[in-house]
Nucleic acid binder design. Structure first.
Length: 193
DNA sequence: TTTACGATTAACT
DNA sequence: GTTAATCGTAAAG
């Protein structure tokens, strides 16, 4: 065996003090579990300060308060009146920067997720922000919590991930920014890149 | 108080 | 490809 090749060392945990674009990229390949249910993160989007598409762009409101918490804070909001979407805060407290989780490859608690989603197909279980929140049991009750505390577990990948980027989905402002990140070749994305 | 609109999804044609 | 569902939020009046 080659003794010169350095062992690939992944960060112990994502540095949530980094800008959201870096965090969104770094999170690809991590395994997210909520009460033991979840899988590999395969799609994220970054929402930065001075970003017209971000909920925090116009300052703090009752809904987006968690976005202005310290790095590692969870931000859960309701989308279109019926879906929940799950974010991690990054940069630093008060900036309102965050990363949206958009898709997960199911690996843990698949039957639980199938029951919650009432869907059989693995590909349709967590392939979208609303879908993954439903599958993992994420609701507004998990807003403004810490990602490094129960019920959350974030496990680093054991191999480097090949990450692609492209335009974010479902926004009307700042559409040109390539701030959507995906695991290359993944079959579990919300939409092909 | 009123109104317009989503960081979406599922079910259509 | 198109559109209905569905309602909290925030901007406007």
């Amino acid at each position: 065996m080659s003794s010169t090749r350095p062992r690939l060392r992944c960060a112990d945990l994502v540095n949530f003090s980094a800008p959201p674009v870096a965090v969104a990229q770094a999170l690809i390949g991590y395994t997210l579990l909520v009460d033991g249910v979840g899988g590999r993160i395969v799609e994220t989007e970054a929402y930065d300060v001075d970003d017209e598409a971000s909920h925090s762009f116009r300052g703090m409101t009752p809904r987006n308060g968690a976005m202005f918490g310290p790095p590692g804070t969870t931000y859960v909001y309701r989308s279109y009146g019926l879906h929940w979407c799950f974010n991690f805060v990054c940069r630093e407290a008060g900036h309102g920067a965050a990363v949206l989780l958009r898709a997960i490859e199911p690996t843990h608690g698949i039957e639980v997720m199938r029951a919650r989603r009432r869907v059989e197909s693995l590909r349709n279980l967590c392939s979208g922000p609303g879908k993954l929140a439903q599958a993992l049991g994420i609701t507004g009750a998990l807003d403004h919590r810490r990602i490094d505390a129960p019920p959350f577990v974030l496990v680093p990948p054991d191999v480097a991930s090949v990450v692609n980027c492209g335009a974010r989905i479902g926004i009307s402002k700042a559409q040109h920014l390539p701030w959507r990140f995906t695991l290359s070749e993944s079959d579990f994305l919300s939409k092909r890149l």
